[in-house]
Structure formats: C-alpha cells, structure tokens
Nucleic acid binder design. Structure first.
Lengths: 223, 223
DNA sequence: CGGCAATTTGAACATTTTCAATACGGGTGG
DNA sequence: CCACCCGTATTGAAAATGTTCAAATTGCCG
C-alpha cells in the first residue's frame, strides 16, 4: 500500500527497488540506469528474455502481435513509473510481449541472473508467490473483456479513469486498441463527446470540460 | 519454471506453498484446507479482502460487475490449480473481483495477516517485486483486447488453446464473455464450426474433430 | 413426469468495421 | 522563415458483423 506512487522516483533512496536493496543502509542496488528515447523498443516479443527492467520515469506500451497477422501488433497495456517490465523472464525463456517507449523513459535493468540473485534464495514464500503469479499471468492469453457498453460509453469511462500523467503521449492507435475498437471508432466517439460539450479535443490535446456529463454518458450508476 | 503443473497437488509436499513453507523439512504450512462445492462464492468484489487463497484442485471464475449495470457481472478469467486468489489483499483493502467455484474446489487459505507473516519481512526484494506487480495489476482496469478477428476466429482460437482440464465445466455465458461476445454469438460460432466439421458440439460436450481445419479458421499463420 | 434454467435458433436492428478520401501537424530542407 | 511531405488523425458512406429480443428446444432435477 505504501508503494511508490506519483511522487516521482528521483533517486535510489526513493525507489522501491533501491530501498529493498538497502540503499542508504549500506546496501547496493544491482540494477543499472538507462535512459531511452521515445519510440525505442525495449524488448521484443519472442526474443530471449535476458533482462528485467524497472520503470523510474516515463511511459511505455506493451503490445503483442496479432495472431491473424503477425506483422501488426495490438497494444495491450501501458506501463509507467513503478512498474516492472519483462518479469516473465523469471518463468519464461522468452518475452511474451513487446515493450516500446512512448515517452523518453528512465529504466533500471539487470540481467535475469543478477535479478534472480537479487530476489534471494529460491523457494522462499515471497518468491513462490511471485513466481506462481507470473506463471499464471503469462499463461493466460489476453482476453477480450465482455462487451461492456458501446464504444461511446467505453471511451467516456476511459476518459474518467484517465491518469493525468499518462494521457498526453498516448497515440490514438494505442488507445483505441486498449478500448477494443479501431482508431476510426475512437475518433468518432471523441467527436461526439466534443459535440455535446463533454470534452475539448484536438488532434493532440484532450481536456475534460464537463465531468458530470461525461459520467452520465459513461453510464455510471445513473443520475 | 519448475512450478507445480498438471501433475496434481495431492499433499503439502507436492504443493508449492507447502514446499516454500518447508513441509517435510520440519516446516509447517500456515494455510488451511477448505473444500467448497461447485457454485459457491469464495469472495465478492468490494468486500474487505481478509483472506488469501491458493487453489489446490478445481476451477474458479473471476468476474467483475459491469459498470453499466452493477447487477450483472462479466467473467474476466478462469483460475485453476496452482493459482493464488485474492492476492490483492496484500495491496488493497477490498477484493477487486468476485471468485466463484465452477467445480468443487480444494483451496488453502489464510488471513491476510497470517499470509503476510508467511511471506517474510516486508521490504525484501522478492516482496517488493510481488507487491509492485500486484499494485500495477490491480490498478489497471480490465481492458478489452483489440478487435483481434471475428467472433468465429476468436472461438476457433480459443478452442485450440483450450486446456483439456478446464474445458468441461465452463458454462457458455462465462466463455462467451471471456471471448468478448454474448452467449448467442458463441452459440452461432460453435454451430458454424460444427457445420464445417471442425468440431463436434452438443449442449455440454465439445470435441475437436479437425484440428487443422480449426487452425486455418483461426487464421494461424496461414496454410 | 412436469418445470426450470441454460442454450440454441431466428429475424430485425444497431453498431462497428472497412475502405477510401481528406485534413492536419510536425519535421525537413530550401 | 516558409513551403513541402509524410504519417497520423478525421470524416463519409457502404457493408459486415454482432447484438437484441423473442420463441423454441434441450437437458437436468426434483
């Protein structure tokens, strides 16, 4: 519960990983900093999972190749500050998805072996829980959620949940896929929301104008 | 990687949790067995997260209330042997979803405090990784996967991925929601697959007849 | 053997996707 | 500093797909 949140991870002393390593109490964090520019691929689905990363700053998209057409990929999540990336390396030989930087990112990384050593001896309760969790998370293919309302409704809801910090950089294609629709549909939904005055939208900015209206369109326990 | 799989968890000595507790080496596992009949609710979304469970046998559905209509709920996953349930208790005050037994299940459970103690001292690397992972997993609302093919295609793919063991008990309503469609659509898709001879389907049995045909319908890198 | 609930089927309807054309906005090079 | 170009986003109209609602069927259970 007291996990690092939106304060910003500025140093190893304010980083959960750093603290767990005992930085400041004579400990040393084995993960090393790297900064990567926006647009860069951190790792690619299917390649040997050699490195595990921790996000200190910035935002990334996780995506997986469409099975229909391996040349296209469908975004399946966004990760930001405080997330681990590539943890599947602990239970899988290869990465299960592709991670790409959406903004400039600051990552701390370590090889699988180093990370493994950092976690402590195998077979401890905490490691077991972690590994079982990862095992099951990786095994489960990404599933479509049930049809939970129309496109307009899903978009309205998404806007309400929006973390201020994550919003700006996410391209339409990513967002639309996350919401289970094609970019055109997202465009239309945003246009409609703008038309009724719920939001202000331009090609690259987005602002909620009337949160109450948005909520009612989202179908939140009606008002 | 050597995590308990389909062999069956028959005793604490073959259970990951038991082994991590040192059962057989003088240790004692703090989780206690419970058997619950099919159909029973294990916990409900929103209620205080007091107990964490480990699945030793059987299958459960996890679901979350639809935001449109809190009276209905949409299944968002199936958990079986070897999965932890209600782990969100470590980072959240309340359960984030509802767990219901699909078959008779054998669970081992412990209160949050007991489980917490079992995990060992807070702030260790393994615990940190576990907690960060859970934190992010809980925070992320279940997202629809991108429109990854038509209903027929998704159903065909699902059939191919099907774990033999999980198949039998899952009702249509659950399956259909997992696949992002209404039960009627699933019915029709199954009927069509049966019509072309890819599967044999009856109201409560399901058998793959022609795996190759199914794969081609699923759009697996074309043949 | 009846009643019930889940599933299947049918047909009309609504929505979303598709395909194609257009408008932007940012970056580049003159 | 401005014109040009390219990729992303938007818009339009038609087509396909999935949903809805209602009715019929089936299997299960008392």
């Amino acid at each position: 519960m007291s996990i690092a949140a939106s304060i910003g991870i500025t140093s190893c002393a304010t980083c959960p990983v750093g603290r767990a390593s005992g930085v400041g109490r004579g400990g040393h964090c084995p993960l090393v900093d790297r900064t990567r520019p926006a647009g860069e691929w951190i790792y690619v689905e299917g390649e040997p999972a050699g490195t595990i990363w921790f996000v200190k700053r910035g935002t990334l998209v996780l995506s997986r190749a469409l099975r229909d057409d391996a040349s296209r990929e469908s975004p399946l999540g966004v990760r930001g500050e405080g997330a681990f990336l590539g943890l599947e390396a602990l239970v899988r030989p290869t990465y299960t998805d592709t991670a790409r930087a959406l903004t400039e990112v600051k990552l701390c990384g370590a090889s699988r072996d180093v990370f493994d050593a950092w976690l402590g001896p195998p077979g401890t309760p905490a490691r077991t829980a972690l590994e079982q969790t990862l095992e099951h998370a990786c095994a489960e293919p990404p599933r479509a959620a049930g049809p939970d309302g129309t496109a307009l409704r899903r978009v309205a809801r998404w806007l309400l949940e929006l973390r201020q910090d994550r919003a700006p950089a996410i391209p339409r294609r990513v967002t639309s896929n996350l919401l289970g629709m094609v970019p055109e549909t997202l465009s239309r939904a945003l246009a409609r929301l703008a038309a009724v005055g719920a939001i202000d939208v331009s090609r690259r900015s987005l602002r909620i104008r009337d949160r109450g209206l948005l909520a009612s369109l989202a179908g939140e326990r009606t008002g």
